[in-house]
């Protein structure tokens, strides 16, 4: 048996082996990114993502894109520069949202009985697709960060509005006006989350007119650009294949 001997018996087997590895690698990448991304996202923007009465037009819009552009940027840095695969952002976001949906359905609803219409996740897909396509067309980190990052922030609120708008219909309740989302938060008792914990818009100056969401989205897009750069380099670093000496002596 010489070292020059082939590992496979035929080209067909080589192709098959390569394809089998594709699936195993994809599975591991998907689940590991899902785990890391999910724990990151739930602890930096989770409460806004968990409950409809946190999904406001100021802080949710600002926080969610900023903290969620992280892993997409890092995974893109690996998959595009090493394999020319323009799916880094979409695969991360899909993984995250699948993880969230499984949890919201089986646990928030299935274990503790919060209706799904109060605890569904935010939609991050539109921004992710645009991020991937810009990277593919431009083949440039800077372009993706600036144009893609901004688009990622800007697309977030309109991408979610069709889902949350029905819950922002006002209702009069015992002499007070509130939205249906507020009412959900009030009705479906969260023993561990008193109302004051909620971080939502509590009134702002109206420098740019009465529309808070576009200003927030724009600011969020702006910060997303910076975060994209930062996490692109994180991604590159995490994609390294270096060895360190294991010789302690």
């Amino acid at each position: 048996m010489s070292a020059s001997q082939s590992a496979v018996r035929s080209r067909a087997e080589a192709v098959q082996v390569s394809r089998t590895f594709d699936w195993m690698i994809l599975f591991t990448l998907f689940t590991a990114v899902l785990g890391g991304y999910h724990i990151h996202y739930m602890l930096t923007g989770g409460d806004w993502d968990f409950w409809t009465d946190w999904k406001d037009r100021r802080l949710w819009v600002t926080v969610a894109p900023i903290v969620s552009i992280t892993f997409p940027a890092a995974v893109q840095a690996c998959l595009w520069w090493r394999y020319r695969l323009p799916v880094g952002a979409t695969i991360s976001v899909v993984a995250l949202m699948i993880g969230e949906w499984i949890n919201r359905y089986l646990n928030f609803w299935g274990w503790t009985y919060f209706p799904v219409n109060i605890c569904f996740p935010s939609n991050l897909i539109p921004g992710a697709i645009v991020l991937d396509v810009i990277l593919m067309l431009g083949n440039s980190m800077t372009l993706t960060a600036v144009v893609g990052g901004l688009a990622y922030g800007l697309l977030f609120y309109p991408g979610n509005w069709p889902v949350i708008a029905p819950l922002h219909v006002p209702v009069e309740y015992n002499g007070m006006m509130m939205t249906l989302a507020d009412l959900q938060g009030y009705h479906y008792v969260r023993t561990g989350t008193p109302e004051y914990i909620r971080m939502v818009e509590k009134g702002t100056l109206r420098t740019f007119g009465k529309d808070v969401a576009p200003v927030s989205a724009f600011f969020s897009g702006f910060v997303s650009i910076i975060i994209y750069f930062l996490w692109h380099f994180f991604g590159r670093w995490f994609a390294k294949t270096d060895f360190i000496s294991d010789d302690a002596s």
Partner: peptide
């Protein structure tokens, strides 16, 4: 990867809802 999914995603976010209860 599979074990990370269960630990970091499934059971970690689940914590959020149990501590509401």
């Amino acid at each position: 990867g599979w074990a990370i999914y269960w630990g970091a995603s499934y059971f970690t976010e689940q914590d959020g809802t149990w501590h509401q209860t």
